[in-house]
Amino acid sequence: MKAIHILVLASFAALLMVAAVHLPRRGDPNSPANRAENVLKGPVAGAYYIQNAYLDAKTPNMVTVILADYRGFDTLGETVVVFAGGVACLYLLRRRTS
């Protein structure tokens, strides 16, 4: 039983390694995520944010602009998740008086 588990794990790791080797290499400026325009001549998210973040919000830190402005709805949901986690902890662990 244990041998089967290890075999499954090893084959899964080998699969992931094969997939990783087919990615663009680390630091490639021309990989699809780092290019300035995609195959349809449209803008790519990363390059668009770099070029427009300061003009749109006068904030030098692009990560802050993306976090709070371009993807503000994402961060709102994430804040609600943090709050829900806190409330879940409270209700799981509170001292029961009864």
Binding site: D56, A57, K58, D69
Partner: peptide
Amino acid sequence: AMLRYVGI
């Protein structure tokens, strides 16, 4: 742009 700065 400055309003976005304040909002952030």
